[in-house]
Design a binder for these strands. Sequence first.
DNA 1: CATATTGACGTTAAATTAACAGCGAGATAT
DNA 2: ATATCTCGCTGTTAATTTAACGTCAATATG
Lengths: 258, 258
Amino acid sequence: MIKADERREEIADYVIKLGQVRIDDLVEHFGVSRMTIHRHIDRLAQQGVLRKLHGAVTVQPSGLYESAFRYRVTVNRAEKDALARAALDYVEAGQVVMLDDSSTANAVATLLLDVKPLTVITNSVATASLLTNVDELDFICLGGQYHNTYNAYIGIVCENAVAQMRANVLICSASAITGTTAFIQDPNVVRVKQAMMAASVKRILLIDHAKFDRIALHVFDDLTSFDVVLATEGLGDARAQALERAGVKLRIVKTKVP
Amino acid sequence: MIKADERREEIADYVIKLGQVRIDDLVEHFGVSRMTIHRHIDRLAQQGVLRKLHGAVTVQPSGLYESAFRYRVTVNRAEKDALARAALDYVEAGQVVMLDDSSTANAVATLLLDVKPLTVITNSVATASLLTNVDELDFICLGGQYHNTYNAYIGIVCENAVAQMRANVLICSASAITGTTAFIQDPNVVRVKQAMMAASVKRILLIDHAKFDRIALHVFDDLTSFDVVLATEGLGDARAQALERAGVKLRIVKTKVP
DNA sequence: CATATTGACGTTAAATTAACAGCGAGATAT
DNA sequence: ATATCTCGCTGTTAATTTAACGTCAATATG
């Protein structure tokens, strides 16, 4: 269990160092079967660390890739992946999809690569690096002031840019939930997200259950404003029923994939 | 996909070395069918590395400078570095600096890290990745539609974002120069650069001498519109004097660093 | 008109995937 | 303590998919 994770890190480091590596090179270098290499890099590609070509793997070619963010994305990965997979039900090929700067939305981005053609809009740097140089994918980055903590562009420039657009679907997350209210910690991030809400036809909120019964500094929006609220199981029946009574369109997502 | 990439690089090197090559030569030299050569050079032409004639291929008439970003960064490294170092004379700590998507401006960005505190604005992805997470440096990214060839964000979203700002200094480059006119290959890039010109108090153009006496598709601006035009030596005294007589504020930069 | 180019299609080689089986480390029950 | 079970990881093989190339006919071009 540990050994495989280490092996994956070794592979990631090796590929990042060389930029582009043939799969047979990896087979030889690590002395394992081709199949095993495939399984490793599939997972790394899933996490957005690498990109598979035919016969080789590369790092994200934009150079935007920051190793510091490589494994930050993996916190609560199982839950985020489950939410992301469920969110795909609301996206169709050809649509315009807006993603916020959350790591959950970033997980959605990795899966969106299979729903091409698409237009994707985001202010997240991590997501941006995933989506550059992808065929059949029109990518628009929301600019603005770079914010270290969120690894995203925010501020008035960003808000104005959002206001110029319309997306079919917004997929976003929040810092905390209490009752039927979603909260966000940073005031500037709130403004960007609210602009995204206004610019989108369908709005989907992705929340893992650990965020319930917490608050953050600023009110983002009421849960009833979303067309769908996807939450991981563990939320509890009582709370789920209370939310549904309050008019929230809740959908519980199973984390475990049998 | 990898094998073909290598083959394409071989072809590109071969053509660049000889300047112009007949397709039948390539067929013989690489021992593949005519159709395959066509497919390869089509892709290279699409990337902007080569140009197809009837029965032959040449390197781009305006040089390599409009080709894909990864071919551009390493070209004329010494000259770009010299220009970048000279450009620093026009930047003071505390100012707002705007950089375009050129590889020359990217070279400037690496040096700007020593002139903090600064506010830097750019639409270049490569430059953006250089400037994120730097202390005492306020970084604003201009968003927009991602363009693979330039590795930058362009389009109307970008233009509007630029129009919201004012910079003390703009540092930019051009694809080609003829007489006192600067040219740019891509129409959408022209618009962004012109917006940058309008948004900046002082404008600095960085040009290596290989770009003189060439044209590209679109007129960017007249050289007299710039507060300073930095060019590498090799431009020649005759042309330099002609430019100065025409009112261009020219400064020649020595490439050699003793 | 001669030659270059493009598009459609078939072939081949290679890479990827799926399915199945073996192995070893805990966990659990006897 | 031992046996057994489960689970994740790995390897093998076969089936499937994909990329690359060539041929030839149709079309463009100088």
